[in-house]
Design a protein around this nucleic acid. Structure first.
Lengths: 243, 243
DNA sequence: CTGAGCGGATTGATATACTAGTATCCAAAA
DNA sequence: TTTTGGATACTAGTATATCAATCCGCTCAG
């Protein structure tokens, strides 16, 4: 792994504070920048499960001291992406096979709640926003851009949470999706799968637009069942990546 | 706020590493000890919402350097108990009124899932464990010990998650319950409420024991609806505590 | 030849020192 | 009297130094 070393002055030319949910006024700090980089690297499997992370080495690569690196690693540990063994070392977490079924259960439970409520109260504008996301997904599928496609996939589910008025649920879902997505990233993105995802999204969208709670729930449940990665197969392909 | 200053040697006489879920080998560290203390202080409202927390002052009170204090504060910030404004200050978070309805929704969604699955697969031993918890609750109610009662209440819900085989759901529930409990702590514990909680727990327990999924779900939903704190009233009693 | 014990090297944990941004307060001018 | 400008003090962010624990390899005794 190589990282572009960052200037210490980076935080001077930062944009105005973000007033996101919860009134976080936190600006871009060195620690959080490193967190983002490592987070992306682990999620994209550029850093493979099991490899050692050394505070000192990372600090040198980024051109900063160990303190912000340590802060970033602590946050990654809380997210479950790295494991810190005191006085021993820090390693990229293996993908926790055992946790994935539960993660799927949690997703189903929470997304069921959001999609039901969204179907009840969605406005025309909300539907338009979903349509826009699906349209972008079609483009990415046609151009075979799995990464951007996945981003829009996240946007779709986030939009539903937003429609339901449950932004907090989305932040929980994000953390739950982490490990699932890491496993899924191992499977080659299949062209056909993207198309069926779009179809499933369309079904969900239609049910929400029709305020049909039952169909919305059913469509979402089928959708979520379809995206469960085949762990056993992956375990064979990538031994040592799982716990 | 006053804290007992801690000996630097505290971590020497620590018990063997904990092998909790996820193979965390993390021992008791200064930072986590401080985290626990602050966590408890904020949750018990010994530290009122809005008051300023200064890394330096806390470090002096605990007799440690700023580094572990800072680590603890970062974790508290992630849990939503404090808000860190860079180069400005750290403050105990106000109780986020707007988030409480959503928190209740999340609880209902997840606890519905756990109680349903628990009702399906509970064994006699599981029921015995629930009975033991309820028995302890009776004692604490009789002796009017709200704090211990609340601990056993948590244990009851945790036990159901454990029966269902969803320990991850419990850890999510814990973080979601945080703000709810903080609001609830403002209401004086009423003797009668403890008794009705026990009754509701009994109903849930009976439904689980009978493998009656529908009744288990219904009882749990009623139970969770009953514990919603009356925010409007609290807002009048404690202005400035809420966001 | 084998194994226990010692010692050095590595690295995580903590402490301290330093930098830079923010807010407040006071004084001076309108 | 009010407003604005600057100086000051305080706080979080970062860097560096020091401490301590664990691990690995080597040596020496059996």
């Amino acid at each position: 792994m190589e990282f572009a070393s960052m200037s210490k002055r980076q935080r001077s030319d930062v944009s105005s504070p973000t007033f996101a949910s919860g009134a976080k006024i936190r600006r871009v700090t060195t620690a959080s920048a490193i967190y983002e980089q490592l987070h992306a690297a682990i999620l994209s499997l550029q850093m493979k499960p099991g490899v050692a992370l050394q505070e000192k080495r990372i600090a040198e690569e980024f051109g900063v001291s160990r303190t912000p690196v340590r802060e970033a690693l602590l946050r990654l540990a809380e997210a479950g992406l790295v494991e810190i063994f005191p006085q021993s070392g820090t390693f990229v977490s293996p993908i926790p096979v055992s946790a994935i079924p539960e993660a799927v259960v949690i997703r189903k439970s929470l997304e069921r709640t959001t999609v039901e409520h969204a179907a009840e109260i969605a406005t025309a504008g909300d539907i338009a926003r979903l349509d826009a996301i699906i349209a972008r997904q079609r483009v990415h599928a046609a151009l075979n851009e799995p990464s951007q496609f996945h981003e829009e996939d996240e946007a779709f589910h986030e939009a539903i949470s937003a429609i339901a008025g449950y932004p907090g649920i989305w932040s929980i879902l994000k953390s739950v999706k982490l490990q699932i997505d890491r496993a899924r990233r191992l499977t080659l993105p299949v062209r056909g799968r993207m198309d069926s995802v779009i179809e499933e999204h369309m079904t969900i969208r239609d049910a929400i637009a029709a305020h049909d709670v039952d169909h919305a729930r059913g469509a979402m449940m089928r959708h979520l069942s379809a995206v469960i990665p085949d762990i056993d197969e992956l375990r064979l392909l990538y031994p040592g990546y799982f716990s």
